[in-house]
Each structure stands twice: as structure tokens, then as C-alpha cells.
Amino acid sequence: MTDMPLPAKNPRRFRFERHASTILLLAAIALYIALIIIMGQTRFLTLENLVAILSRSITLGITAIGQTFAILVASIDLSVASVISAAAVVTSVVMNGDPAMMLPAVASVLALGAVVGLANGLVITKLEVNPLIATLGMSLIIQGVLSYYYNNFAGNVPVEFQIFAYGTVGIVPFSLIFMFVLAGCAWFVLRFSRFGSDVYSVGGNKDAARLAGIKTDRVVIGAHVICSLCAAIAGIYLASRLRSGAPWIGAEGVYDLESIAVVVIGGTVLAGGRGGIWGTMAGVIIFSLIDSIFNVAGVDAFVKQVLRGIIIVAAVAFYAARSKRPVA
């Protein structure tokens, strides 16, 4: 257990890490408000605009919730972008405009997600393939199979189903509420369930967890199933938002690398065992805010890229610099 910095053993560091994502989020918010005031664009300070900002990154947010589980068990998932594409295509092809097919479509997509997650988990645990390679390989396989059958937007989503992406309660979109509810569930699982505490133990120190009687393989597999399920849900959402699915929409949004980036910016450690869902949500909102700041300030697309790269590294350094552990 010595290698596992359980929060209780090191309250000071824990507090910093717990609050670091909040500090980063507040900094981003302050920057945004300052920019709006300096530029005299106070018309952006409305509730509508707040909702617009929060709704920017729902696909990313749902994906990142799942990615948090993978990273917490010291794994990683590069196949999420392909799963998103596959899920979106399957959603729109199965529905094909028919409202009666909504349920079967969602069910088959969730099954697809579960199978992919299971396969990822099994390859990682039983064949002991490095997760980066395992999920990268899986990503290629899914992408290959998908583009064998489809090479454009395929099928379409019935109007009834577009409510998922476009419906609102007052001014708040359903999908935004859905994302936060999903985050709440994830938080609940991690905080209060046996599986949740196992996730932290396995991520913190796999050998110790095994000695403590935890079936570590099952926990890793479980985390990957959750991760792929979330990616599948993100794909369903994207199909609803784009009204159809195409085999490139996951890769186009760079959801694989971006979801890893927001999870890490949210304070979850790549080495596993430390972090949580709300940090990830903070990371997602920070990304949305950065996008909005760039849009308001009219930052050139190329400068945007440079700044985004620096921000990712700087944000992670903000947590990591004081860490005493070696990093990979």
C-alpha cells in the first residue's frame, strides 16, 4: 500500500489536487469575463450564452466521462473516436427515419459499445497488450469494418429522435441535462459503490489491489466497458445532432485525444488511481470556454492551435510539477 497515495494519508496534496481543477476553471471563467468586458461585448453575458457555452462540448463531455474510468484504472482508450463514428452510423442506419426503430437502434448501439469495451478489456488484461496499442489496434479494426460498409452519411434519424440533441426545457437543452445526470451517476458509482473503490485501488497499485483480493482484471474490463458505452452514447447524441452518421465524424472531432486531454486537465492522473468525474467536467467546461474565448477574441485558427497545445501542457504541469513521482 505504500505506493498508493490514498487521500487520507496526504491531506495537503489531496486538497490541492481536489481544488486545482476548480482553480483552473475559475481562472478560465475570469479570463472570459475580463475579455468580454475589455472588448465591450457585454451582450455575451447572458444566460443564453452561458447555456450555449456549456452545450458546446456535450459529445466530448459524454466521451470524457467514460475516458475517466479508463484512465483511473491506469489504462487509456484510443478507440473512442471510432466507437463514436460506428455508434452514430449504426444509430442512423437502424432508425432510418422510422420512429419505431428508436429503441432497437439505441439498444444495438449500446450492445456494440459493450462488446467493444469487453474486447478492449480482454485484450488488455488477458493478452497483456499495452492499452495504448490494444485500443489503437481496436480503433483501426472498427474504422476498417465501418468504412468497408459505409463511406458517407448513411441513414437518417427521425425528427422525434432529434429531440435528444435539439429539445430543450426552457432554454436548457435536454442533452446538457443528460450529460450532467450521466456525470452524477458516474460520480455516484465511483464514490459509493464497491466497483468504484476497486477502480481507485486497481489504478493506484494493481499488485496491492490483487493482494487485497480484488479481481483486478474484472475491474479493468468493467472500466473499459463503461468507457466504450459512454463513447457509444456520445455517438448516439452526435447522430441526433447531425441528423445522420458518417464513418469519419469521430475522427473529425478528435474525440480520442481531446477526451484524454480534458480528463488529464481535470486532474485525473494518467498513471491511474487519482482523480474524478467533476474534475473531468471542469476540464470539459474549460475546453468550451477556451473555444468561446477564441471565438469572441477572433483568434486566428492557427494561433488557436498553438495556444491550445500550450494550455494543455501548462494545465497538466500545474498539477504535476510538484509531484515527486516519476512519470512515464
Partner: peptide, 12 residues
């Protein structure tokens, strides 16, 4: 180059 992002941009 992202549909998702462009929809959000137009919303903004």
C-alpha cells in the same frame, strides 16, 4: 473541420 463544432459556432 468538425460538424459538431460548427453547429456550436453558429449557436454562439
Amino acid at each position: 473541420g468538425s460538424d459538431d463544432k460548427q453547429i456550436a459556432d453558429i449557436d454562439d
